[in-house]
Design a binder for these strands. Structure first.
Length: 271
DNA sequence: AGTCGCGCCTGGCGGC
DNA sequence: TGCCGCCAGGCGCGAC
């Protein structure tokens, strides 16, 4: 469940901790595929280069190298860890990138919903092509949302989780954002009123920024590149709080399956 | 074209 | 104590 705040946390740490003068010495692939096959010649593609910087697009991580970019998605349970040679390789460490300094960048992913692919310099990637705007950018504004929601009848929660509308929002943060905006997750997008949109945008920004500040939410698998857990799960208003009391009105938090995912909400506060 | 539901995958947990 | 079945969900894809 790494969503935008968790991926952002990982990117910031890797950007700081990876050295642009540390060259890749060797790449060990312990299996040929994650969710999809990885490039067979990944080692040949990476060796002798160094990571210049690390950026994020939605939930994708981009490692910038002189000859191109390494694209990665954490899926449900993926993590990138920076380790020393002394640390043991564990079960589910699928890719190990070893630097000349002896440090290792390790991709660990028990459920293997993650992905790793190579993008040659100047190339586009199929998976990045139809992504919507970043939720923390000015492109995600009232005019954009109004236009994009008018002729649609999907429930607002599913709309928020669709990366073609806006990137980075998954099941946890969609529930949290809609609680803060006081909008029911089941409301159809074309029933969202014009004057509700500013509050929705504000809720998106607040929830994501607070979660980034807390280092993300750790539910089950998520850890940062330093192996640390986030703290935002302790700040959840609704997610994972079935039958607990709403902090605003004291009624019981509800949970229901929506689009084959658990949706948590307060039926009194959210309309 | 919009909407919906499936399946991938493993570890953890509840129930018997 | 052990085993079975269910659940978690990001995202592409196929069906309607």
């Amino acid at each position: 469940m790494p969503e935008l705040p968790e991926v952002e946390t990982v990117c910031r740490q890797l950007r700081t901790d990876l050295s642009s003068s540390d060259k890749i010495k060797r790449v060990q692939m312990n299996r040929p595929d994650l969710r999809w096959p990885m490039p067979e010649d990944l080692s040949k593609l990476l060796v002798q280069q160094s990571v210049q910087t690390v950026t994020r697009r939605g939930k994708y991580i981009l490692f910038h190298l002189p000859k191109g970019r390494l694209l990665s998605h954490l899926g449900m349970s993926g993590s990138w860890r920076l380790q020393s040679t002394a640390e043991e390789i564990r079960k589910h460490d699928h890719v190990v990138i070893e630097f000349t300094s002896g440090r290792r960048l390790v991709f660990h992913d028990p459920r293997r919903f993650g992905m790793i692919d190579w993008m040659p310099l100047g190339s586009e990637h199929k998976l990045l092509k139809s992504l919507g705007p970043e939720p923390l950018s000015n492109a995600f504004n009232a005019e954009y949302i109004w236009k994009k929601t008018r002729k649609r009848s999907v429930p607002i929660k599913l709309w928020l989780m669709n990366n073609q509308n806006v990137v980075g929002i998954g099941n946890i943060y969609a529930s949290e954002i809609l609680f803060r905006a006081r909008i029911s997750p089941f409301r159809k997008t074309n029933k969202i009123k014009h004057d509700e949109i500013p509050k929705l945008i504000e809720s998106v920004r607040e929830v994501l920024l607070e979660a980034i500040d807390a280092g993300g939410s750790s539910i089950r698998d998520y850890v940062s590149s330093k192996g640390e857990q986030g703290n935002f799960q302790d700040c959840h208003d609704v997610y994972g709080r079935k039958n607990k009391l709403c902090f605003v009105c004291n009624s019981k938090i509800q949970v229901r399956v929506q689009g084959s995912r658990s949706t948590y909400w307060c039926k009194v506060c959210q309309v």
